[in-house]
Amino acid sequence: MDIVMTTESDVAVFSIIGHLDAVSSPELEGRLGTWFEEPGTRLVLDLNGLEYISSAGLRVILSAAKKMKARNGKLGLSRLQPRVREVFQVSGFSSIIPVFETLPAALDAVR
């Protein structure tokens, strides 16, 4: 897994690439943990390059969503690939975390 963090004006974008599983999810958790030390309130996870996610990856995203809610921030996910989208749908996560077809749509939504 690779994580690329960029900032689109006032929105932090984490692009997650490869497999987000029980082995790699602690790395994402650590990177997000560092970001959460600052008071940012606009966060997008761009999943365009994500090929696979398991419950360990969902756990990290759920935890980020809860932290964003606690600080009255906004979180959006963008560009889920078919298999990742299926995991989000089956687990009911698509109904609790906003999912967008494009990155600009996610950026607009959290602004």
Binding site: L58, R59, G92
Partner: peptide, 21 residues
């Protein structure tokens, strides 16, 4: 509970649910 809202959602049990699913 796959219907729980964000505040009440827990990850426990999701892995086993994925095995079945």
């Amino acid at each position: 509970d796959l219907e729980a809202g964000l505040a009440d959602r827990k990850i426990g049990g999701v892995g086993i649910f994925f095995i079945r699913e």
